[in-house]
Amino acid sequence: MNEYELKVYDEVEDWKRKLTRRSGMMKRLSKKAQVKVNEYIPDKVHQMMTDSIKAMVKATLFGSQLTTNHNQALGLTLEEKDELVRKKISTYQKTAIVEGAGTGAGGILLGLADFPLLLSIEMKFLFETAAIYGFNTKEYEERLFILHVFQLAFSSDEIRRQTLEDIEKWESRKEQLVEMDWRKFQQEYRDYIDLAKMLQLVPGIGAFVGAYANNNILKTLGETAMNAYRLRLLQKAPEL
């Protein structure tokens, strides 16, 4: 073990503490309002949304699997892998900014197209990150882990703590976590996205809001993915 791994272990511990901290009052109030709105939506509509997002995610998982270079980080140290992931985060942020600005500038119709486009960017990034840290996404359990990382990035306090616990204990829990709770998955993500991108459909400011929101969304996903995979690689404190 080396000094860099010890530094990373401390960074991951700090990230976990930040992640389990209670959200601010405005975010909690917004979430309560979203939950209340969701209660008025008929079950048939919820099921339609769930089925739609499930199909969309599975399609992006398949596409990302085909286009990811699974051998891009062979022989690299953890420090070199971290640096490569940081470069990927920057690249995907720029892609998401262009996509958000383009669909935001287009008003309501193009704004609606933003959802699947952003989702495909996010999933592609997660596959790249998994490959860099040496995890084989051809295995079902690794694709399931990707979905848990995604959920960890975009969920409310309670779901976030529960998902972090699953990720921390992945090796012992993965056999029980056979399938995602797709309704919870789509609802948490939709609520997060709605809050972040509320003004994107407004003509005139949509481009700015779309670009700004997408940049922050990829930044959040990048930090979450990087630390989730570091957590798996460094289960206990390294010894110098």
Rank of each mutant, 00 (worst) to 15 (best):
L218M: 15
V202K: 09
S23R: 05
K7V: 07
A211L: 03
Q65N: 07
H46S: 07
N136F: 06
G204N: 10
E128R: 08
K87F: 09
L218S: 05
T91I: 05
L61A: 04
A59F: 06
K197Y: 03
G134Q: 10
L78T: 11
I217Q: 04
A101T: 01
V37G: 04
T77K: 11
I97R: 12
K174N: 06
M123C: 03
P203R: 07
T67P: 01
R190H: 09
G104P: 00
I146A: 06
N136V: 05
F154W: 08
D43P: 00
F115H: 07
K87P: 06
R190T: 13
S120V: 00
K16P: 05
V98T: 10
L221S: 06
G210P: 04
F115V: 10
S155V: 02
A153C: 12
L126T: 05
V98H: 10
A213H: 07
F115Y: 15
A105H: 08
K18A: 12
G134Y: 11
R17D: 09
L84F: 09
I53C: 03
L231G: 04
G134I: 07
R22Y: 09
M198A: 15
G102P: 02
V37K: 06
A211G: 11
R183K: 15
Y189S: 01
Y9V: 00
E188C: 01
W170E: 03
A207E: 00
N215R: 14
I89H: 02
V12M: 03
I132Q: 04
Q187N: 11
I108V: 15
D82H: 09
N69L: 08
R21V: 02
E39G: 00
I193V: 13
V209F: 10
V35A: 11
E168I: 02
L240K: 14
Y192E: 02
M25W: 15
T68Y: 08
R21L: 14
A196S: 09
A113E: 01
E79S: 14
A101R: 07
V202A: 09
M226P: 00
W182A: 08
Q47H: 11
G104E: 02
D191S: 12
V8M: 14
S52M: 13
R17M: 09
R230L: 13
A225F: 01
F185I: 03
T137R: 04
G107N: 04
F145H: 06
K81Q: 15
D157G: 05
V149I: 10
D14S: 05
Q200P: 02
Y40F: 12
R160V: 02
L234V: 01
A59S: 13
P116Y: 01
